[in-house]
């Protein structure tokens, strides 16, 4: 966090100078008074200036955006970042040219970037925040694809009466499969194996 220490005749004056130096407003900073001013005897003997420390407040959203922009500059990408704040999480929606590289194989790069982003912004936070990165609606498209796949395979399990094991998926993707099929009366789903190779299994429900 950027911070400055400023000494001036009064506390107000010192804070004002500090804010100008940081180019911030009062609600964007924490102010700590290190030394109170003292007029001294007859206005000169033992007079003391005020000393304040003004520190920029940590804003995870700003920090997150800066982190992503920095990484994109190293990758020579210039996506537009559109931030949508929901109750439990915030989505960083990216759009622009050549962003396929940010998605990677089955979203692997996107998941890695998102994981690192969450680590970095939560480093200094007691109340953790949750950030999701999406590239031009990739995540919602992937969600639809997985739901379709789940329904198709469920039908196959019902038709053949034999279980189907899906390929390894991350927890979020497995969750989509489980949720899609949770109300299906003829099959059940569970996961088996160890991360990162954990897979969903769809089995016919035993007839009572």
């Amino acid at each position: 966090m950027r911070s400055v220490e400023v000494s001036a005749k009064t506390v107000e004056e010192a804070v004002k100078i500090a804010l100008e130096k940081l180019n911030l407003t009062e609600d964007e900073v924490n102010i700590e008074i290190l030394e109170h001013p003292n007029k001294g005897f007859l206005g000169f003997l033992g007079s003391k200036n005020a000393l304040v420390r003004v520190e920029e407040k940590y804003d995870p959203l700003k920090a997150g955006q800066k982190f992503l922009e920095k990484i994109f500059s190293f990758m020579k990408l210039e996506p537009t970042i559109n931030i949508v704040e929901e109750d439990e999480y915030t989505i960083f929606n990216l759009s622009g040219k050549d962003l396929g590289i940010l998605i990677g194989r089955r979203g692997e790069t996107l998941d890695s970037l998102q994981f690192l982003l969450n680590l970095v912004v939560n480093k200094n936070l007691e109340n953790r925040v949750k950030y999701i990165i999406d590239v031009e609606g990739y995540r919602s498209r992937r969600e639809n694809t997985l739901a379709d796949l789940a329904n198709r395979l469920a039908k196959k399990v019902i038709r053949t009466g034999r279980k189907v094991v899906l390929e390894p998926m991350n927890p979020q993707e497995r969750r989509i499969i489980h949720l899609t099929l949770q109300d299906n009366k003829y099959i059940t789903t569970y996961s088996e194996g160890e991360e990162p190779y954990r897979k969903v299994v769809i089995v016919p429900k035993k007839q009572a």
Partner: peptide, 18 residues
């Protein structure tokens, strides 16, 4: 389980592939 190292490698690999 090397999760952070893996994420760093994945992001750097993507940048290099470009």
């Amino acid at each position: 389980q090397g999760r952070i190292a893996k994420a760093i490698r994945t992001v750097v690999k993507a940048a290099a592939a470009k």
